[in-house]
Design a binder for these strands. Sequence first.
DNA 1: GTGGTCTAGACCACA
DNA 2: GTGGTCTAGACCACA
Lengths: 123, 123, 123, 123
Amino acid sequence: MIILDYKDRRPIYEQITEKFQELIIKGALKEDSPMPSVRSLAVELSINPNTIQRAYNELEREGWIYSVRGKGSFVSENTKALDLKKDEWFEDFELLLQKALVLDIPKKEITDKVMMYYGEGGI
Amino acid sequence: MIILDYKDRRPIYEQITEKFQELIIKGALKEDSPMPSVRSLAVELSINPNTIQRAYNELEREGWIYSVRGKGSFVSENTKALDLKKDEWFEDFELLLQKALVLDIPKKEITDKVMMYYGEGGI
Amino acid sequence: MIILDYKDRRPIYEQITEKFQELIIKGALKEDSPMPSVRSLAVELSINPNTIQRAYNELEREGWIYSVRGKGSFVSENTKALDLKKDEWFEDFELLLQKALVLDIPKKEITDKVMMYYGEGGI
Amino acid sequence: MIILDYKDRRPIYEQITEKFQELIIKGALKEDSPMPSVRSLAVELSINPNTIQRAYNELEREGWIYSVRGKGSFVSENTKALDLKKDEWFEDFELLLQKALVLDIPKKEITDKVMMYYGEGGI
DNA sequence: GTGGTCTAGACCACA
DNA sequence: GTGGTCTAGACCACA
């Protein structure tokens, strides 16, 4: 379910948070369903429980999950966290568009790329 | 000419390389014109010469500048380096588009943003 | 009668004690009336009887209820417990007022908030 | 400057973040002035550097300080973080006022306490 | 068993 | 030297 990439420059805890965000967004993990326990996931991924703990802390802080001491961690209602994530996306996109202007990349190359990913028609 | 932002998360040497790339792309620094000396720039920015050296090494490695022993560093013909930079840009853009699909961001919101930066008409 | 909030950061047993204190203060549970049995409440709330037991122990320790071996737990005369609770409240309030001074929060904003909750006139 | 209270129920890292927030709010630590290094503070307080690190991470996340790799941590412009802190204060205060209504604490006792801390006149 | 905190100590990127 | 990440392992509160 979760595969770590040690060659990735991003820290492991960040790879884990991202992966879970994706699973929640895609609906693979539904509201109030239990997250794997810190310890079991640590064993499964062969990494230290502290690293999982840190990832879960991040997810909780951003509103993706909630933790119940003695019971485990569970998926939250995710609309707020998702909105935050989308806002971040647009910030990143604007930075990239500024760079595109500096690099003099033609508009058409950009919109073509968008069409490649989204298809010509539709929304 | 160059302003460092210590609050920026990126390392100083990276801020410097980026800034010079921008100056070269914009034509502010022309082919074969001399780069500021490592020492003078270190003094000007009040930072460690090692950090400037690292930035210059990076720029040379990517083909933006070339160094002549005993004379200093000079701006290269920049087409190759610029192409590399554009390739990198498209890699970043593709990663972002993948994320957009996951986040279910509508195509229209993306193209609208592009229009905001590039204008409706033209290229 | 009692609804647990697993997303609440406070432990379950504390939510339960608080809720019973509230019911006793409001007069919903009168002096010498029986508390629900540990087992029945555990079943009703679908939680571990240990957790209920811990909450009842807490309530007994603070003088809200008393237990009779073989018969169950009953609501005490609650004046002492209520006074303790009020003392705690004022301790919390003083801590908050100290913080308010540090944060430089204007007196008027505080008294306005009090009026919002208590109304302008009266006691 | 910083005294830890091991009898305090709050974790050490939280005591540290609170203390620094206070020092920044009071102006004892001014914008862009350096924070003690993670290691030196760990030695001074005889605790593990990881615990300091965690406190500094919190402070950075909330906008009180910014960290520059290889240089150290520095105090940020603190208006945003302060506003957040005030918002939190009012949330706590509203919770307390709700409890006050349940406990039937007279309005006068509350406003009297406010006067004790703020004085009768002024703002 | 489950999450939360903390210590001791290592290694890395960066200045 | 400075912050950032991670491991190994301990102990606590809680269910």
